[in-house]
Design a binder for these strands. Structure first.
Lengths: 209, 209
DNA sequence: GTGAAATCGTACTATAGAGTACGGTTTTTG
DNA sequence: CAAAAACCGTACTCTATAGTACGATTTCAC
């Protein structure tokens, strides 16, 4: 027993170190992109030597993929937490859209979005994996809820996945779109409220029973 | 007169050369991105010497910006041509959405979209300029048409620019979104028709008088 | 034909960053 | 304490590519 905990302490340290490396690397990748991020600079920020860095991740590519993996896990966990759907239709949709928009307009989410967008030519897997984990996961969650609304007779029957995509498209057609191009609104919270109200109103007019 | 035309021939050659360089560079930038594009490779493809390339564009950055400039001009010219709005509301919106989606789902448009997205951190101007010339220009054009529809009593009064953004958001919420992540549909034309039909239907239900 | 402008080929400089090698030092385990 | 694992610092190799220099050659205007 004692032997195990002692050995585990070493492993825990390694895990900690790994997390630290991922955090430092994520900062750089998200802010500067893949090409402009240098392994040497990461090693320097960490304080350790280059050899150590390479002992954790055998190459820049490996580190990059580990960072994306880490980030998408965090992204999805946040989203699922934000998407517990219960209560009145309009109210629930409004809460969902607001939570969703708040998540995806955060600086980190925008940076991640851009990073994957930028590098998914160089790393073809990256785009598909991210799509599965973030946009697709969100669509599925929302779609399942809409399915229940249809069963309850609150919404007209139809393809719930397509309906989910339309609602999400409406949500991101305003401030999110502009933020992606570096043209932010004066007040983000107000812009989000406006987008949410529009999206829900349009959606309900289109699909309510 | 003769003097002028003769001198012009030299200028015309230079102009041709410039266009050729821009075309070759655009291929590379659009396919491989900024970092992975090398000036030496462009010079090699052109066949000439590096000195000549630098005599046309004093740096890689300058060439990059010239390429983006050239591409957005082409992009906007195409769009404006595709957006002559006349006739019945539903029919006009359908034609507009179809033309728009066909343009923005073309391989070059997708690549341009990604390229600007990727590099607008390194070149902060690029994002704003592109936004002005492409998404914003489209919004303005559509918005002006919707304004007329409101005046005619076909649509309920409202903020026409916001309405335009919602319609465009609906259009790109389907296959365009997936294409951006490298997850293309089996049949693009069919997917476009589906998106167009949905978008127009939802829009009309939401805003028709 | 003649001179000027453009072009060519090639060799060069300078920089930057990925990944390696290695001998010495600290930390952890038992 | 002793052995092993991890870590450190530093110096190194290798490759890629932006940008320059320059003398030789072609093209074009007149």
């Amino acid at each position: 027993m004692t032997a195990v905990t002692l050995k585990d302490r070493r492993d825990a340290r390694k895990q900690d170190r790994r997390e630290t490396i991922l955090a430092v690397a994520a900062r750089s990748f998200l802010e500067k992109g893949y090409a402009a991020t240098s392994m040497s600079a990461i090693a320097a920020t960490l304080g350790g030597s280059k050899g150590t860095l390479w002992s954790y991740f055998p190459s820049k590519e490996a580190l990059f993929e580990a960072v994306l993996d880490h980030q998408t896990v965090a992204y999805r966990r946040d989203l699922e937490h934000a998407l517990d759907l219960a209560g009145d239709l309009r109210e629930t949709l409004t809460r969902f859209c607001r939570n969703f928009l708040e998540k995806v307009t955060s600086p980190d989410a925008l940076a991640l979005h851009r990073l994957v967008q930028a590098e998914h030519q160089r790393f073809p897997e990256v785009g598909r994996i991210f799509y599965e984990r973030a946009p697709r996961a969100t669509q599925r969650l929302l779609s399942a809820y809409l399915e229940r609304c249809i069963a309850n007779g609150w919404l007209r029957p139809g393809d719930s996945l397509r309906m989910a995509r339309r609602l999400i498209g409406l949500c991101i057609s305003g401030c999110h779109q502009r933020l992606m191009w570096g043209v932010g609104p004066a007040s983000l919270p107000e812009a989000i409220e406006e987008d949410v109200a529009d999206a829900v109103e349009i959606f309900i007019r289109a699909y309510a029973a």
